[in-house]
Design a protein around this nucleic acid. Sequence first.
DNA 1: AACGAATAATTGACACTTGAAGTAACTGGC
DNA 2: GCCAGTTACTTCAAGTGTCAATTATTCGTT
Lengths: 170, 170
Amino acid sequence: MPKDKTPLKLVEPRVDAETRIHDDHHLSVRLWLRMLACTNRVESFVRQNLQANFTTTLPRFDLMAQLERAVQGLKMSELSQRMMVTGGNVTGITDGLEKEGLVVRETDPADRRVFRVKLTPEGQRQFRRMAAEHEQWVIGLFESMSMKHKNQLVELLGELKRHISRPPAE
Amino acid sequence: MPKDKTPLKLVEPRVDAETRIHDDHHLSVRLWLRMLACTNRVESFVRQNLQANFTTTLPRFDLMAQLERAVQGLKMSELSQRMMVTGGNVTGITDGLEKEGLVVRETDPADRRVFRVKLTPEGQRQFRRMAAEHEQWVIGLFESMSMKHKNQLVELLGELKRHISRPPAE
DNA sequence: AACGAATAATTGACACTTGAAGTAACTGGC
DNA sequence: GCCAGTTACTTCAAGTGTCAATTATTCGTT
């Protein structure tokens, strides 16, 4: 497109608005990258500790955590939803835990398609030990931040979560 | 420990402190879970869009993003550090991108152990298209949150990042 | 110059994750 | 009762990720 011939001293009128928009763009991406960095740091820390202290993994811990408060067990599909992963994934993790005797698949008499997955007593024992330490790891990581700032973060992240939890409906 | 005999109206002195500690524990874990939920939401959204619109993945996008502003290329180990993943992982992702002609490994005459990985012109072209859309996705997700709150979040996450970026020494 | 230690990258084994395709079981309308 | 459609779960292939072991190269000391 041809350049307009403009008087030498004319400043573009849209600069302010564009600048603000540009900043906002940058801001959103920066926010995203920073949040990602924090999450990765904590996650990898927890992961390493689970591996080193209990020879287990975050997904396994997560699955057991979902089961802990579900006395009557959870269906594979419920686990899938709560862990926010696909069904095929849950199958594999459950296989592993079952092989180690930490969970069991029980058939549901009312619907033979369904399994109810439950923690075994052994699984409960092990999970409780892990959960206690897990809490300490997280607390330790965050301890140098003031409660005031932590509270602010929880608030703001709560707001963010509400904003992003449903896709910007067309 | 033996209870002190105290006048009836005296309230136990440690209750406040204990309560605060207990709240703090809860607070840290809540903060962690909430941050994780937000990150997962954004990440899976970006992932799906990259797959659907460009038949590519987040790690590939991430690697190309690291290369974009490094005209002279990056060593495998530098990529590994910046992407916060292990070296073996970088090898695999680079293999894939090189096979598709989006990056190249160039040998370094000064040190024959290292590769300098660079974007090809084709890789640059594709990355720029992806980056533009990526930015729109993130902006879209976050658009309903005020700039003020976004700024506060960036600030607080920056502080959190500093606190957790080095393990609580010794 | 030569050797041991450190560094750069790759490889292989194993685990997690997704998406698509497959199997078995249930449901509702005819 | 049948059968099309849905639901629950599994299986498989490909990509991502870690760790430990290996190879090749460089560096520092002697």
